[in-house]
Amino acid sequence: MTTCVFCDIVSGTAPARTIYRDDDVLGFLDIRPVTRGHTLLVPRTHASGLADLSPELGGRLFAAGQRVAGAMRSSALAADGVNLVVNDGRAAFQTVFHTHLHVVPRHDGDKLSFAKGLVVRRDPDPDETAEILRAELGADLR
């Protein structure tokens, strides 16, 4: 039996900087962010890819993405835009086979290239970043 790191995060047996939580979706900062605030949203129920994800749960995942994206724009992160990305399958660069939505804050002129950003991905203060997003989402997850 293989283990799923995202299932471990959902169950609380693996660490994460959680910034969003509801009955169906958990959100936490990516450990290798493309930009500051890069968040992963995962369904609490394991689905290895989009084919395994119910449309209803997919809708709830996307709704959570909209909420987190709004927090990225209105918080001190002051994002000018947001990328919502799902990598579905190995050929699409999916590396953890538990469906997840990347919510990536963008800033005018950041010249971010996802391929280039995958090489150098560091947040200078991930604890502060998590706190900014938690505060904006009204989430007390400590």
Rank of each mutant, 00 (worst) to 15 (best):
I31M: 10
L133A: 07
R90T: 13
S54C: 04
A76T: 05
F114N: 12
A63Y: 02
G81E: 02
P33C: 14
S11F: 10
T3V: 13
R32Y: 04
T39N: 00
R134I: 01
V85N: 05
R17I: 00
V86H: 05
G59M: 11
Q94R: 12
T13M: 05
L133R: 10
G117M: 03
A78V: 09
A135Q: 13
L118W: 11
L77M: 14
L57V: 14
R73N: 03
L137D: 01
R36H: 03
D123C: 05
V103A: 06
L29H: 02
G49R: 09
R122N: 09
Y20K: 08
D52N: 00
I19Q: 00
R122C: 00
A79L: 06
R17F: 00
L61W: 10
S113T: 12
A76C: 03
S75V: 14
R106K: 10
P105Y: 13
D30S: 00
T35C: 04
Y20M: 08
T95K: 12
H98L: 06
I132A: 08
R21W: 00
T95F: 08
V96C: 05
H38K: 08
V10A: 11
G81W: 07
L141C: 04
V10I: 15
D80P: 01
L57H: 05
D22Q: 14
G59V: 06
E128P: 00
V86P: 00
D80Y: 10
G89R: 12
D127V: 13
L41K: 14
L57T: 15
F62Y: 14
G27F: 01
F62M: 15
A91W: 06
V119A: 14
L77N: 00
V96E: 04
D110R: 05
V119R: 15
V120E: 04
V104P: 00
L53Y: 11
A78I: 10
R36P: 02
G117A: 15
V10N: 07
R106I: 03
A76W: 04
T99M: 09
Q94K: 13
V119P: 01
A130V: 01
P55M: 10
L118R: 15
E131N: 05
I19M: 02
R122G: 00
L141S: 03
L57I: 14
H100L: 05
L40M: 09
F28R: 08
T2P: 11
T45K: 14
A115C: 02
P124M: 07
V34T: 13
L101T: 06
R60Q: 10
L50K: 06
T18F: 01
S11I: 06
A64E: 08
I132M: 03
A91T: 14
R134H: 01
L84Q: 12
D8T: 09
A135H: 09
D88L: 01
V68F: 09
D140F: 06
D22P: 06
T45V: 14
D23L: 07
P105A: 06
P126R: 15
A92W: 12
H38Y: 12
G37R: 11
V10S: 11
K111W: 10
